Simulated assay, not measured.
Amino acid sequence: MIDAKFRSDRDARREAILDVAAEVFLEEGFDAASMSTIAAKVGGSKSTLYNYFKSKEELFQAHVERYCSWQGAEMFALLDDEGDDVRAALTRLGRRYITNVMSDRNMRHFRLIAAASERSPDIGRAFYEAGPLRGARLLGGFLARMKLEGRIQIDDPIAGGHLFIGLCQNRMLKARLVNYIGAPTPEDVDAEVAIAVSTFMAAFGPKA
C-alpha cells in the first residue's frame, strides 16, 4: 500500500514537472530553456528535477512523447467504431486531425521540435515514432480490417495510412509552419477533408 502511494505521488510529481516544462519550452525554446528555470517554476531544486530526468534532452523527449500520446489517443480513438463505413470513418478522423495538427499550439510544438532535432536527432526520432509513424500504423490497422471486409482495395495499409494523412495536411502544412495562413476554420477543414477522402476512396475504394 505504501509502495502504491509512493508510485502515485511520484507519478503525479512527474506529470507536474512535464506540465511546467511544456510551457517553459514553448515560451523560451529548447535552447534557451534551462533546468533551473523549470525547477523554480515547479517549486523545487534542480537536484529534484534530476531525480526524474537525467538531462534537459530527456525531459524534452518525455514531453514530446506525452504530447504525441495525447494527440494520438484523441484522434485515432475515432476509428474504434468499426460499424461506420470507410468514408465516414476517414472523414471523422480527417476533421479531427486537421483541426488538431493545424492549431496554433501544435504549430508551436512542431517548430520547437524541428529546431531541437537539429542538434539532438534522438528528439526528432522520438517525435516521429510516437507521432506520425504511430498514427500511420494505427490508421493502417483500421485500413487492414476494412480490406479484409472488402470495403477497400489496398496493397499496403500502413502506406495507405501515411498517404491519407498526407492528403489531409499537405496543402496547409508548409503555409502554417511559416505563418503564411492562420488556423483553418471549420469550413476550411470540411473542404480539405472532403477532397482528401474523395481522392483516397477514388484510388482505393471498391471498384464497380
Rank of each mutant, 00 (worst) to 15 (best):
P121T: 08
G135Q: 02
L177N: 11
N100P: 02
L79K: 01
V193R: 02
R111W: 06
M146Y: 00
K5Y: 12
S55R: 11
E192H: 11
R111S: 06
L139H: 05
A196W: 12
I123C: 10
G161Y: 01
E28R: 05
I152G: 03
A144S: 13
L133M: 00
E57H: 09
F30S: 05
A115H: 11
A114P: 09
G182E: 12
R96M: 08
T199Q: 13
V193A: 04
K54D: 15
Y180V: 06
T99K: 06
L138Q: 03
L59P: 00
G161E: 03
L139P: 02
K174I: 12
F60I: 11
P157T: 04
L138C: 02
F110V: 13
A159M: 12
F53V: 00
G29V: 10
A116W: 05
E187R: 04
F142Q: 02
F6W: 09
R96H: 09
P121L: 06
L133H: 00
Q153M: 10
M201L: 15
Y128Q: 02
L139N: 02
E65M: 11
D84C: 07
F164I: 03
R108H: 14
E187H: 01
G83H: 03
K174H: 14
V64Q: 07
K41Y: 00
A136I: 04
E149T: 09
K54L: 11
D188T: 07
G94H: 10
L18M: 11
E187W: 01
V20K: 01
E23N: 15
F142K: 02
S55F: 11
I2F: 07
G131I: 00
G166V: 10
G166H: 11
P206T: 09
S34Y: 01
L177G: 13
G141F: 03
F6V: 14
V24I: 13
G160Q: 02
T199S: 15
D190L: 03
M1G: 09
L138F: 02
I2E: 07
